[in-house]
């Protein structure tokens, strides 16, 4: 990247260097993405079948094909800081149809994993982690539901970690092994104070 350092910050931004230069590529990013995804992203020949069937593409700037391209070229910064990374619904239509037998959905998941390692993650994911740490459920029970369950002849709490909270420790151990709760709490605090 060539930095221009013009005194006017607006001009500096407007005229910033947009060339692709080799120093923007990180080959480790490609390797790491492929390993996590379990798919040879570097074999993508940019046919566009993935984007052609993507439900998110027609209503946003999200382009799965471009994310594959970034994977191929090792454009780590662009990929991980693009907010569109989180618009994939993981419907797997692209993976189903890819003629090179790649899994673009898994590439997105891999990139999201790598983004998380940099604390780049929307807060709703972290809230889910916290809920699971507390109760074992991403969508926990509530009293309206308990009443309804009782009327149906079911136990007020389902026979999950709700009814057997002793199992929650095990779940917490798993989450702690990967420091997930710790990181989730930290990032939530940084964002929401």
């Amino acid at each position: 990247m060539v930095t221009k350092n013009y005194p006017d910050p607006k001009l500096n931004e407007k005229l910033r260097d947009r060339y692709y230069r080799r120093d923007q590529s990180n080959p480790d990013f490609t390797k790491e993405t492929e390993k996590l995804a379990g798919s040879m992203a570097h074999m993508c020949y940019q046919c566009g079948t993935c984007t052609g069937g993507c439900p998110s593409a027609p209503r946003s700037t999200y382009r799965i094909r471009e994310f594959m391209r970034r994977g191929v070229l090792g454009l780590e910064e662009e990929a991980l800081t693009d907010p569109d990374l989180w618009l994939c619904t993981t419907c797997y239509s692209c993976t189903d149809r890819c003629p090179r037998d790649l899994a673009p959905t898994d590439v997105i998941m891999a990139m999201r994993n790598l983004a998380f390692r940099r604390d780049i993650v929307p807060v709703n994911f972290l809230k889910t982690v916290q809920a699971i740490y507390a109760s074992g459920h991403g969508v926990p029970n509530n009293d309206t539901n308990r009443a309804a369950r009782e009327k149906l002849g079911l136990t007020r709490d389902p026979p999950t970690t709700h009814m057997y909270p002793e199992y929650i420790k095990g779940i917490q151990k798993i989450l702690d092994h990967y420091k997930l709760k710790e990181n989730a709490d930290r990032i939530v605090k940084e964002r929401e104070g």
Partner: peptide
């Protein structure tokens, strides 16, 4: 852009072709 999938209009029997114009970057 390689055609992702095709769907048929049940009344007219016309086809809807889904692809991406990769040069424009638009589905």
């Amino acid at each position: 852009g390689r055609v992702s999938n095709i769907q048929e209009d049940p009344d007219t029997k016309n086809l809807r072709v889904y692809a991406e114009d990769t040069l424009l970057g638009r589905p």
